[in-house]
């Protein structure tokens, strides 16, 4: 696992105002929550992939592929097996239920993937700046970004502790639940104690650097809204509209006819291509 997701690259998504991205993320989440059908969720997945490509963050998403796949498969399986309606265990095999479960899995994976794209294209400092622009007090914004900064540090020290104990023969993979729980003591105690020590040092370090000196802070990071933010806003509104009324629109006779002729055209094209020697 890489310690930070942020990729220091030049891209349109990187250059978006952090507030734009901070608004876009929950909006995307909202849209994903609204959509239920596998087909429409697949369309949304396409949108996320395009944004990731624009932000040159496809490799960051790919790097987390195992996490995303685990989420997708686990969620799908859980819903499919245990869903209150159409679940395999209650109602037996139903293709529609499987599709719906896959949609729910995809929804979750999509939300995580868009989070990854956000983190890969937004520096922690810009994130903090965005939060402050949205009106959060500095201390709160700072605490949030600090938490972000510390996650990799905690992960690293957690890994160091686990390695140190495995090197002394600790085996976490075998045995019953209770013995396994007990085996976590050698991991939890050192992690807890090193974390406390680190927090202590961090507080001292912040103070020596004038944190909370009472002076009015200067914010070094500066952003202005630009044309691309306006464009992003329009696209977002379009996305929300499509998710709200897209279904109705698609059932209009005129749209149905247009879709039908488009399909006919594609099929003709395919037939022509296939008949070529």
């Amino acid at each position: 696992m890489k310690l930070f997701l942020y990729l220091d690259r030049e891209s349109v998504v990187h250059r978006l105002h952090p507030v734009t991205k901070l608004v876009a993320l929950p909006v995307l989440f909202g849209v994903a929550m609204r959509l239920e059908r596998l087909e429409t969720l697949a369309l949304l997945a396409l949108v996320v992939v395009v944004v990731a490509a624009l932000g040159r963050a496809l490799d960051a998403v790919a790097g987390m592929a195992s996490l995303l796949l685990t989420l997708l498969i686990a969620t799908t399986l859980m819903w499919w097996l245990f869903a209150p309606q159409g679940g395999l265990l209650r109602d037996g095999f139903q293709p529609a239920a499987l599709a719906r479960s896959a949609g729910l899995g995809l929804r979750l994976a999509l939300m995580v993937a868009s989070g990854i794209v956000f983190l890969a294209t937004t520096r922690v400092e810009d994130f903090a700046h965005g939060l402050r622009t949205l009106g959060l007090p500095y201390r709160v914004a700072f605490a949030l970004t600090l938490a972000f900064r510390l996650v990799p540090t905690f992960v690293a020290s957690g890994r160091a502790v686990a390695e140190a104990q495995r090197a002394r023969g600790l085996d976490l993979d075998h045995g019953g639940l209770v013995t396994r729980m007990r085996r976590y003591t050698p991991l939890v105690v050192p992690m807890f104690l090193t974390s406390i020590r680190r927090a202590d040092r961090l507080a001292a370090a912040l103070e020596t650097r004038g944190f909370g000196s009472g002076e009015k802070r200067t914010d070094l990071v500066e952003h202005r809204f630009g044309g691309r933010d306006a464009l992003a806003a329009v696209l977002l509104v379009g996305l929300v509209a499509a998710s709200l009324w897209g279904g109705e629109l698609a059932s209009q006779p005129a749209v149905q006819a247009a879709l039908g002729s488009a399909r006919a055209w594609l099929e003709a094209l395919y037939a022509k291509a296939a008949s070529r020697p």
Binding site: R209, G210, F211, R217, T218, L220
Partner: peptide, 8 residues
């Protein structure tokens, strides 16, 4: 320096 309110 930000904490001490130094100009940008």
């Amino acid at each position: 320096a930000e904490s001490l309110g130094v100009p940008r």
